[in-house]
Structures are given as C-alpha cells and as structure tokens.
Design a protein around this nucleic acid. Structure first.
Lengths: 225, 225, 225, 225
DNA sequence: TATGAATGAGGATTCATTCAT
DNA sequence: TATGAATGAATCCTCATTCAT
C-alpha cells in the first residue's frame, strides 16, 4: 500500500507530466481538426478563429498557446494533413505491379482518399489558390513546399521506372508527375465546384477512371511497328 | 435666351440622354476593370471595395448604384470577362482543320490568351475555389454556370466532331471537354502557384504543348489493326 | 424666386461643400477633445478608443477616418493643444517689462493656464513620460519636438535679453530655459500627483510664486560690490 | 530505512523550513528585480507579466503567490527600491558640512545614483505619472506616500538646519524640499525624455551642477548690508 | 445620379488572472 | 508551494453598406 502511495507521489511530480502532455496533444489535435474544417469551408481569409475555437471546444486564447497566429495555424493544418496523406500515398504504391497498374492504383487511392476525406485534399490544394503566402514565415512556406515535393516524388518515381522498363514513352518524369498531380487535383476540385453550383454531372468515379485510362494511353510507349 | 433654355431642355431630354448613358457606361466599365484587378490580386474576401472605387475613380457609394453588393460585382466581373473570353475562344476554332489541330489551336489560344491576360483566367477560375456562391443570387449563379457551359460547348463540339470523323476514340464529349478544360485551367493555375512560391520549373509553354500531345495520344482512336 | 432656386442649385453643387467641411471640422474637434480627456486621464496605453468615440459621439470607425491610428490621434491631440498653448504663451510676453517681470508674467500665465486647462499641460507633458514614441511616425515625433522647441524659444529669448541687459548673470539661455520649463512642468505635475494621492499641501499658487522668486534670485546678476 | 524517513521528516519540519524560507526569499527577490526592469521599460499598463515571470525564471502562477495582482506587484517594486534609495540618501548626508554643501552633496548623490541605477529613479518617479492609484489598496498608497515623505524629510531637515543657521533665507522647509525634489526628478526625467527623442543637449551632469548653484543662490540668505 | 462621410458589426490578437495538478 | 495551461474579457482596427446632401 505504501508503495502505491509512493507511486502516487512520483506521479504528482513526474507522471503528471505525461498526463498534461496528453491533454495538450488532445487540444492540439482538436484545434487542428476544427481549423481544418473551417479553413476548408471558408478559405483562409474568411475563416473565423472564433468558430475554430468553438468547434475545438477551447477558449479563443488557447489557440494562441498552440499557434502563433492565423497563418501559422493554417500551415500547421496543411502540414498535419499533408503528412498523413503522404504516408498513405507512399504505402499505396506496390513496386511489384506494372507501371500502368501502379498509376491506376495510385489514382484509385487518390480518389478513394478524397471520397472519404474530402477536406484533406481541399485544404492541401487550397494553398495553391489563395494569397496566404504573404502572411507565412519562410520556414512555413518551405515546409509546405517540401511536402508537395514529397508527393510528387512518389509519382515521378513511378513514371521514371515505367520509362526505364519501356512501358512509357520517354519523358521528363517530374514534368509528367506534376501534370498528373495537377490533373487529379483539378478534377476533384472541379467536381467540388460543380457540386457547389449544384450542377449534375456523371459520377466522378467513372470520369476519373476514364481520365486515368486516357492519360495512360497518352503515356504509353508507341507500339513497335 | 428662351431659345437657349429650350435648347437646354431639349438636350436634357434628348441630346443629354446619350451623353449620360455614355458616362454611365464609362463608369460601369471603369468599375469592372478596377474590380477585376483587385479581385484577382486579393481574392473575393480580401478584396477591398475602397480600393476598387479609388482605382475606378468614382466614389464608394457609386459602386452601389451599379452593383447590388460585393458578390454581384464579383459576378459581373466574371461575366464581363467571361463573355470576352468566350467570344475569342469561339473565334479561335477553325472547322477546316483536323480535330487534332483544332484541339491544338484551341489549346494554343488558351495558353496565349492566358500569357497576355493572366487575370482573365484567374478571375474566371477563382469562382471555383472560393465560397462566394453563398452570397450570390440564383440569377447570378445561373449566369456564371451558363458562361461556363458555353465555353465547354465549344470544346465538346470539337471532340464530338472528332469522334464522328473517327479521329478520336468514342467517348462522352462533354466529359472529355470538361476534363480538358480542367487540365488546362489546372496547369495554368499550378504554374501561377509555383511562381508565387518561387519554385522554378521548366517553361510552361513547353510543358503545355507536351501535355496537349499526351492528351491527343490519349484521345486518339486506336490504330486499326 | 427662380433666382433663389438657382441659388439652391448652386448650393447643392458648391455651397454644400462648406457645410460638409464644417461638419467634418466639428467631428474632428469633438474627437480631439474627447481624446484629450481620455488620454489625459488614462495615459496612452490604457486609453480606450471605444470611450473616445463614445465621448465624441461618433462611431468607432469614424475615428479612423480622421486619424490613422491611436498613436497619430495622440500626436494630433498634443499638436492641437500645443499650438493653442504656444500662441498664448507668445502673447503673454510683454517686451516692455523688465526681464524679471517677463519671467514672472510668463510663469503667471503658465500657472493660470494650467489652473483653467489642467489637461492641456498634462497631455503635453505626458509625452515625456510614456513609451509612445515607438508607435509614432518620424513626422509625428518631429512635429512634437518642434512644438516643444518653440515654447522653449520664448523662454530662452527672455533669458537672453535679460543677460544682455545685465539683469541676469551670464548663462546658457537655452539651458536655463530648459531648466525653468522643467521646473514649471515638474511642479504642476507633482501637484497633480499629490492630489491624486490625496496629500494636502500648501496651495500651489503660493508655492509657485515662491519658487519663481527663488529662481529669479538664483538668476540675478551678482550685485556689484 | 526508517531512520532515513525520520530524517526526512525532521528536515521537513525543522531543517527544511529555513531552506524553504530562503527559496521563497530568493523567488521574491527575483520577481521584484524582473518586475522592476519590465515596469520601468514599459510602464505599468504596457508591462507584461508573462515577461516578468520569464525573467524571474518562475511560473506565471507563482507571481500570484507572492503578490496579489499587477498593481500590488508594482507597488512592491516601488517600495523595495524606495527603501534602498532612502537608506542611501540618508547615508549621503554629512551633518558636519555646511548646509550648502549638504545640498550639493545630496544633489551629487542623487545624480550619481541616477547615473548608475537609472531604473530606480524612473520607477520611483513613474507612479507620479500614471493612473495606477485606482488599482491599489489603501495600504499600498499609504506605503508609497510614506516612502516619499521619508525622502523629503531628509531634504527638509537640511533646509531647516540651514535656515536655523542663517545660511538660507527663511522659508517653509517642506515646501522648498518638495521643490528641490521636484526639480531634480524633473531634470532627470526630462533628460531621459530628450534621449528618447534623440535630442542632443549639453551633458546633464553639467546642467545639473549649474542648476544646483542657481538654486543655492536662490536659497541663500540675503547678504547683510 | 453621384458623393463620401458615417456607421457598427466583426475579427485577430493580447494578457491578467484562475485553477487543476 | 509551484506550475503552466486555460480562460475570456478587452481592444485596436477593417470594411461592406447606408444615407443625407
């Protein structure tokens, strides 16, 4: 019994730390989640930190214990979700498959991920379309740029191997990777916009697959005649 | 003296009218131009109507004589520039060319037009990425949607004829048109974002042409075996 | 009658201007007055612009139509009251009097002015005691410095003439002017502080005159032996 | 083992007490020192308790274990430094000297002390210029008032003896003490303000001595004729 | 019709103070 | 007793919109 008490005493000086840390981590996560929702829905400028705080169920001031200001919070959201995404993207590649199937698989993952986590992509993509950069520290911009590059690197790798194996026509892998990336983002974005405007289209899943096949035909090495 | 007065009165009812109309038209045009610049640079939310008024060289209140509110002004800018664009787009199509060349030509026009009028595209594209819709009247949304469709119709027409002529593999022309449109916008947008982040890439013109060829290969009807 | 109407028409285009200007001037004055009261009572940092607006009976935003920000409003208050003071100070000097009496007169004016316009001096003096400078534009700092110098110049002039006439012992007129100025300000300030702390002292008027005589004795040229 | 525990317990009741007391005193001192720096630099309102805690190397909450609130901490700083000052001031007086030299000596001490401990005076003087009083308990106000009086008493004593000895003209010693005190504070303060505004003046040391001589001449008993 | 001064709700950020551990 | 995370009221400033002239 006394040993237990001692344990308690230890806790009050040392074991409490982890508990606090856990609570802090929880808050951080909740803020990031709330921020993601709001930033996604309203964009950087229109997003309201009051609402973020409310959704995160913390006081307004608490936001500023975790993030220096609105812009840094925005970046943190991007980085957080970007990292999650990058990891999954990397995991989606199966080197045993043919380059074409790797592309199909990646595209499928991309689409799937989007379907279930719309905001992840939106917020990631959003940086492209908003004049937030001015408000960000250089570090923040660099962090995001790296994230972006990491994703492209995965795609470029597939292309490069495809070219080496003769499956794809010779090309600049990075250029093509960038192209595919842009296309994918564009389609999802476009779908989203159409939905916002309540325009009915054919289901994206189908269009997406058609597009992938079209691109694969375009990438393919010319048939030896 | 009385004749003068009459002259005055006549002018105020008949001759002055056109002069006034002209002045009104001038104001409208100046406001739209100023608004385009500001909206493009800052996005919908961050744009400042004070600056718009200043650039247009009219009083702030005057803006509201011509446009109901910020959102409607935004739409008017889109519509105005969209119409100009659509007209040019239509003019760029030469039915005498092969479908592939029509695509190439359209793509080239698109690229060219963008190079010289960056903002036109930006502002047009911007609607896709911002939560403005909520502030717009239904009429306004419809107007924009129509504009969008008109542009797509041009592309869809090319595709459709290409399929009919056997140059392109069978497909849903609208879907493909939408795809091409998305790709083009995405590339330009992406280029812009890269520039903002000061990332160096290979020149867009080149990438763009490579992309067009890739897409044409993807579109092409399979070689008869 | 028609001529009257014409007069009216002229007014609506030209005579309205002055009326608006008058209203603007009124607002400006009211804001300055309210700001003076609040700045004086609370100091620069603690002063609340909400209250200023309320006292001036204008909306919060209106403040910013007239002054760029808190610091500039502060300076404007200083400058406004400083100018009024300087003018009066200058007017209080009668070159026909003996240097001693000029000093007495100036001191009396100073004291008198303070008694009836406490805040004028307080706010003027306050700049000395607060870390506002960092928030001010260079222009603003210079403006205030000039004001300060102008007041000193009046005093220095008296001293200089007194020395030239042999009434005062040789000295650096600017140094002595600065000294007198500091003493006067210090006494008034000190009185104010004492009042705040509810300390009873002998009436300031008396102390002030005693001090003036003490200083005059100190200034006086040694009696020729 | 049990002996160890006992040892522990004994320490916690008898031996630890002084150690704890020492630690408490250390904390108190560190907080006061940090607070002095910050209060001096920024003034009462703008001072930031976060920074105080950081400089004192204690947690923010700890501040409140030692001082009820910001205002009381401010007073404590004043009192602490005031006591140090008063003691030194008292020590600077040498009753063997002539009254004039006692004044000179005190003035010199005052000036010297200021030169090496700028903040001591600033913070002491600051109370005069800020609306802190409202936030203070009556006890606190009284404490400060006493401190102030104690310093004046030293000066008044010199004057009084000078008058008694016939060195100074008859006067109200307290009034004159207050006057001298105000002048000295004012000069130092004014110098400080000038420095802040980057105005160049003749060195304060020199001006200060000139002023002292001027005042002494003013104080002097009229030469017997 | 045009003006531009006035409005005031709204939003980012700060910081003294509290309180659970 | 010490900690430091959390709080939320307070504050400066912005800007779309209104309205008297």
């Amino acid at each position: 019994m006394s040993s237990e008490r001692r344990g308690d005493e230890v806790e009050s000086t040392e074991a409490v730390r982890p508990r606090r840390e856990a609570k802090k981590a929880l808050h951080r996560r909740r803020i990031l989640e709330a921020a993601r929702e709001v930033f996604f829905r309203d964009g950087f400028v229109a997003a309201n930190l009051d609402e973020v705080a409310q959704r995160a169920d913390v006081a307004k001031g608490t936001l500023y214990r975790y993030f220096d200001n609105k812009a840094e919070l925005y970046v943190a959201v991007l980085a957080h979700n970007g990292e999650i995404f990058e990891e999954k993207l990397r995991g989606s590649v199966d080197p045993a498959l043919s380059p074409e199937d790797q592309i199909r698989r990646t595209a499928h993952f991309y689409f799937e991920h989007w379907t279930t986590n719309t905001e992840y992509f939106q917020i990631f993509w959003a940086l492209e379309n908003q004049a937030v950069i001015g408000d960000l520290s250089d570090d923040a911009v660099e962090e995001i740029t790296k994230l972006w590059e990491n994703c492209l690197r995965v795609l470029a790798g597939i292309i490069e191997r495809g070219v080496a194996q003769g499956a794809f026509a010779p090309c600049d892998p990075w250029e093509v990777a960038n192209f595919l990336w842009t296309v994918a983002n564009g389609m999802i974005q476009s779908e989203h916009a159409a939905a916002r405007r309540r325009i009915r289209r054919r289901p994206l899943a189908e269009s997406f697959e058609n597009a992938v096949e079209l691109l694969l035909r375009g990438l393919a090495a010319p048939a030896p005649s």
